[in-house]
Design a protein around this nucleic acid. Structure first.
Lengths: 200, 200, 200, 200
DNA sequence: CATGAATGAGTTTTCATTCAT
DNA sequence: TATGAATGAAAACTCATTCAT
């Protein structure tokens, strides 16, 4: 019973921290996070030794979810779309957590042991999807992971820190993907960017 | 004559602030900035009433330079390349000032009167270059400013916050630009990404 | 149980602040007040959000005591002397807290909600005592609250900011009270001012 | 010509300081005083070595004026009224310079050499007027300088720091003076306090 | 285990005073 | 001599972290 309580508290703190960081940026206070979680500061510190550790845990949880999504895509989707779907999903995830990365970077969170292990797994997952896509000719062959990572990072940051309506993000991604595909994979005349659903 | 001294001090503070912010992020202390500039804290405050005001002045100066570059490109370069050159220049500028934007955003710098006026001018400059490029068929016609801004922001953020070797950034931009160009403007077989000069 | 500790700390801070303000005037530092109270500055700020708030709390406590004294006098003393006793007590209280008012005014303490509520109660208490005294002919009938308040303020300020030996204050008050009484209430020949106990 | 300029500047600074202190209290800044005087801070410091020295000079000028008034009254008025007139004048002067004394005391201005010399002259002037009045029976004989000084200080402070409409101050002073007069000098039935001119 | 009061180093900002021009 | 830019000590206030209850 104790264990359950502790676990619930940990989860509550994590959730509260994500919200508060999104709202207040890197300046968010531990007191406030505790208040939102409905616990005392002491409890926050019982679960996360340090503010930085708490922030790192948030990232960790996020990345874990994305990794699961990557695994799912690899089995469920065709190599032709899996890479693009994953890319899109990461960006959508970022857009849904406005300015969180910002807050985390502002807080000076460094890649620690666990994080760098996750980083490795993330890279591996992405590499697989990329190579699969290249094998079936869905992605141009002269592109490589470093570029992909840079493009992914840029897209995520723009989605997270900017305030773009969904369709704008979609079209920006479409442009990006057009650049990523081999010319032959583009429908003749190009992928006309859709403007239908644009919000006012 | 004193005015000259004051102006020099102002410039020194601005320069020191840019450096220190780049190094230490939003947490940079006013004391440190003053020390680097070789002046007392009081002098920093004489020129910039507030930490936030100092940060705003840095952005302002940066944007001003870019606006001048835009004007220069419009006369000196052909519409075919001006847009891409400007885009590239902004990203290079961002790359050269690692984590400054970060620091600025972390400091909660708001778009103030002057800033928002600059924002307007920046949009105008970019719009001109974009339309010029579309007119001569260098940029696909179904792309519009919102997407361009999102792509630009993403590229700048990636360049600024990431630690990519130059060639990686170049290739990522090349991919992006391929997506921006109309299919007809791409050499058949695509723009082969160059790998020659890659740094270790 | 912690609450008891917190309350003790609050009281300590209040007491220390009263002392330090009396000694050093409005320029007293929060650090020093904390040191005297034997707590950290943070604790001072936990209990009083602001220097001004701390000062306001001191006044509040003082006035509360005087209000209790007024209530006591109304039941315990005869209307003939109660007014004069209360007046005297206020002045004595002021004399006992040298330069505190000074410090408080210097700090720009404004009448806030609670304060102005106290102010109202204080006026009410004084008004009752005044009217009682006038009803029994102990105070001239042509005097009214505004004058009484002005006289009281003057007497308190003199007592607080000046450095008068007790007998001097007593005689000054005696003169004042002679002016407040109806001529008939003065012993023929006036109230001879006592000089017996004068200190050097 | 230089001398005249310097003297004008000194006077300007003095005047500006009096105004600014009255408005902003002890916290008034030297910069602001200089600005109001239409000179640079450096000039303020040329005339007054220290903030405290400036404040002392203000008091000094004030007292000098009052001393001249005392001398004038001694020749021009009858002993019967001269004392009361002087007392009234000091209080009126205080009322006209709201919170200046406050500012000065708050600034920790100490009695310096010059000041204490003035203090002596002030006491002497008041003593003369008091004794003259006692000789002609206008002031009760059992009152002495210490009480008078205490009463005067109280009245001045009340006038300066309070916000009493003129008639209230007048009536308060009338009460005070009734206490100061021998019973025989009060018209039978007392000096009815006038209520005629009271402002709404 | 949870709580939240206490701690105090750390930061921003102010302002009297100095001094180069 | 006047000016006002520069100085930097001082002071208010914050907040991550600890620890008694």
């Amino acid at each position: 019973m104790m264990r359950a309580d502790a676990a619930r508290n940990r989860a509550r703190v994590l959730a509260a921290a994500e919200v508060v960081l999104g709202e207040q940026g890197p300046a968010a206070r531990m007191d406030e996070i505790a208040r939102r979680a409905g616990v005392g500061v002491g409890t926050v510190y019982r679960h996360f030794a340090t503010k930085e550790a708490l922030y790192a845990a948030i990232i960790s949880a996020r990345v874990e979810l994305l990794l699961q999504a990557a695994a799912r895509l690899r089995t469920a989707a065709t190599p032709k779309t899996a890479f693009f779907d994953f890319f899109t999903q990461i960006v959508a995830d970022a857009a849904g957590r406005k300015s969180l990365t910002d807050a985390l970077r502002g807080a000076g969170v460094d890649p620690k042991a666990e994080q760098s292990e996750q980083r490795t797994r993330m890279r591996a997952a992405l590499t697989e999807l990329l190579h699969d896509a290249q094998r079936v000719g869905a992605v141009r062959p002269d592109i490589d992971m470093p570029e992909v990572l840079a493009l992914l990072r840029g897209a995520s940051l723009a989605a997270e820190t900017g305030d773009y309506p969904g369709p704008v993000l979609d079209r920006a991604l479409a442009v990006l993907f057009d650049g990523v595909r081999p010319p032959t994979a583009r429908p003749s005349g190009g992928n006309r960017l859709s403007r239908a659903a644009e919000l006012p």
